[in-house]
Design a protein around this nucleic acid. Structure first.
Lengths: 207, 207
DNA sequence: AGGCAATGCGAGCTATCGCTCGTATTCTGC
DNA sequence: GCAGAATACGAGCGATAGCTCGCATTGCCT
């Protein structure tokens, strides 16, 4: 009765040849997701695009969900690295400069692979949110809260959880919407202006 | 070659009996969407839930998309009425009080039918954004921009379009995320605090 | 009452999906 | 070079989807 599909790889690829197959499948999944969307991304089509047979696909991924999970995993990891790196680099900056860098980083993060990001953001939650996305969100929240704690002296005393929620949600929404829905109409100058505006939004909110 | 499915009703129901059928179908679609999600919402199931045959369903709706479009239409109209009403009621209030009312209204708007709203927000954009949603967003943008124009004296001079984008996007994201993803963990007091925080966020940004 | 239009019905067509399984090919260690 | 493990193949199964069409029923008008 409606068992949740597995998302772990079926077997560990030991030979070089099979590792290439796995990579090709993940890459093909990402490409098909972007080009056709989740619904049209059938396992047959993915296998074809990867230059691999369906049978081989199911040797390594027990379900379509597992393939998508692998794509999410990869994209999330890239993004997480950017987030962590920037938060570290910003550690000893005055708050306003730090926030500006963080907002700019959020724009960059959404630009890593905007089309894929959009598909993942808009077409997948149906499955009930893959775990790695939840982990990413939580991690993000924790990291930003730590950032606020380090600047506690510079901000008014408030519920830090609530303040983190407000900041993270706003920055994410502004950069996400700008990059994924207005890239055509927003010039680079507009993006620069947006970074300034978002920085002002956050900094004045916190002070 | 991939013709876009029609979303307009196939025929105009003239007799009372058929109007009841159409209503039952739209209502059933909403119920199934909430209970089963978009993927499991088959036309057969919808017809069954409505107590109507598939044949009758296709007399009035040329495709599954058309049914969903009708549900979105209805939900959007309800929300739009709330937005317009509040913006009118707030017209002569001082800015901070006005913003507070608007934020509270945004929370209420997401509470009209949260489960349906969530399904519509998360599971549908795949089709490429139904037109009525685009219209809603644009309308929202225009209305809020007009609001800002009326308070131009109280806010610093800025790119009004950009400021509108920042405000609308932030308020929407904060209320949307709070209601649809944190309703369990957020008590009423937290929601009240959120309204205050969001108000502060917006007002201090504008000043 | 009779007849035409409006409405309602649902078995079943075609297409496609996720996925399996028996077989063919390639690689590794001896 | 050979045996067995690892890898790759792809026709095809069972399920389900969206949707059609021929026919039955109901309502409206004269």
């Amino acid at each position: 009765m409606a068992r949740k599909p597995l998302t772990r790889p079926r077997k560990h690829a030991s030979q070089e040849r099979s590792r290439a197959t796995v990579d090709a499948l993940v890459e093909a999944t990402a490409r098909i997701l972007v080009k056709e969307g989740f619904d049209k991304a059938s396992t047959n089509r993915i296998a074809e695009q990867a230059g691999v047979s369906v049978g081989s696909l199911y040797q390594y991924f027990p379900s379509k969900e597992a393939l998508v999970a692998a794509v999410i995993e990869r994209h999330t990891r890239q993004t997480m690295e950017l987030v962590q790196g920037t938060l570290a680099a910003v550690e000893h900056l005055p708050m306003e400069q730090a926030v500006r860098r963080l907002v700019a980083m959020a724009v960059d993060a959404h630009r890593i692979d905007p089309k894929l990001h959009r598909v993942l953001a808009e077409q997948l939650p149906r499955t009930g949110k893959l775990e790695s996305v939840e982990v990413f969100n939580r991690e993000n929240f924790v990291l930003f809260k730590a950032f606020l704690e380090r600047h506690r002296g510079e901000i008014r005393v408030v519920d830090l959880d609530l303040a983190t929620f407000v900041c993270v949600t706003s920055i994410e929404a502004l950069t996400h919407t700008a990059v994924l829905h207005h890239s055509q109409s927003f010039t680079e100058e507009v993006f620069a202006a947006l970074v300034e505006e978002a920085t002002r939004l956050i900094v004045r909110y916190l002070q």
